[in-house]
Design a binder for these strands. Sequence first.
DNA 1: CGCTCCCTTGAATATTCTCAACTTTGGTGG
DNA 2: CCACCAAAGTTGAGAATATTCAAGGGAGCG
Lengths: 243, 243
Amino acid sequence: MKFRAARTDQPSLALRAEHPWQSSDQNGSTIELLPSERTELLLLGELLTVKAHSAPIFMQGERAKHLYYLDEGVVQGRHTIRNGVRQSVALFWPGDFFGLPRDGCFFNSAEAVTNCTAYKFPIKDLEKYLPRRPRIQQKLLLKASHDIRLAQRRLIVMGALDVTRRLAVFLVDCCGHAQHFDDENQVLTVPISRHDIADHIGTSAETVTRAMKTLEKKGLVRRITPWQLELRMSELFAFSGLD
Amino acid sequence: MKFRAARTDQPSLALRAEHPWQSSDQNGSTIELLPSERTELLLLGELLTVKAHSAPIFMQGERAKHLYYLDEGVVQGRHTIRNGVRQSVALFWPGDFFGLPRDGCFFNSAEAVTNCTAYKFPIKDLEKYLPRRPRIQQKLLLKASHDIRLAQRRLIVMGALDVTRRLAVFLVDCCGHAQHFDDENQVLTVPISRHDIADHIGTSAETVTRAMKTLEKKGLVRRITPWQLELRMSELFAFSGLD
DNA sequence: CGCTCCCTTGAATATTCTCAACTTTGGTGG
DNA sequence: CCACCAAAGTTGAGAATATTCAAGGGAGCG
């Protein structure tokens, strides 16, 4: 597995995705829009800034008129079921799209976890525009393929791993994002609360704490503050049992 | 929720997907290729017939040169992790694509659960062809969006529901496929073994049996044979707690 | 008839959840 | 700078859920 931030400080509209059909050993395995494609696409969108933990960007069930693209920050996609249990459907990082609807309505809500900047694109416009720009559309198709794989990977994690291993995978995944991981000192700044981690890996906040302690006892994580963790990435990943 | 088979006996290359941005109340909410698009695309592919429970169609880790399209039958996408635990990543039904790689290699293996016919498309050819057929590419993008949503829905199921409810959702989902569900008598022919169900909903075969008995005691399912289940679909779905 | 493969059941064990109390953290205002 | 508060994190104990291992049925097939 490669640890790489797809985007650090480049201009907008990079896609967080690896090319499924090219090995990451060769260069050019991430999917990039050309500068011209970028500026063109941006004309369709509307800039949006959202403060951390403010009102949701959109709510589950709302009519979906826009597709969202995250430029900076972290957004959590949530779904609430009837008994009130919440499940984090995905964490969105810079370079991700979110806001896929079903039957014209958002299937989950989106909340800014940190301060964010995003673009929203009217779906009607996208539908008209994309077929006329097949190379851009192709890159979006690759990005979508990438996201399917990511979701499937998360399914594996949820279905086959115990809570401690799920937490290990979550922490390793966070390290792929330069904004939150100091590569020098191997220190991760956890972007979300224990409760949100719990929603993300399908458990309770208390169990997250206990799992964290288990990782600490194994020497895979050292807790500086609850939010600052020094961690042994490769051992942590090996422990999870994935490849 | 709508219960509908996207494909029963039409010719090949229908996409199992609902249009994300159109309500299913209006007609035309499923994504269809035009007849001309269909024949055109089929020229790129190679027909494939696979017997139930025969050797895998492809194996996790193998070099991925083709993308697969399932025309008839049921295929299970599986991922095996180091400790030997298997997780079913997805069940593929007629109208689904499978075989998404990472780094050029299959991320999971695919096994025919029933007798199947499928097409395989060389990825190189698709990459060259699709940008020249933007309307087809757009439909594939819609299909991919649909599949992302399905995977996210399954994440919700895995993360927020107990085994009995996960089984309920699985059974209801199977009813969406006319080949296996007799709408008249409300009888489902379960397509996969208890063990495979277990892999699919992230538990053990024994627990599947027990969960089945729980559903039976609640009167939501009546077991005719282990494979023939008469079920109360809407109550079953209501019980699961999803919308 | 007997074999195999699956499904089912039981009992002991392990994991995780829930609820309640306690502690730390990070901000706010004196 | 310190005292205080609210929010978040941590810990413990008992209950609920799921796993594992072992053994007992049942259907299909040679």
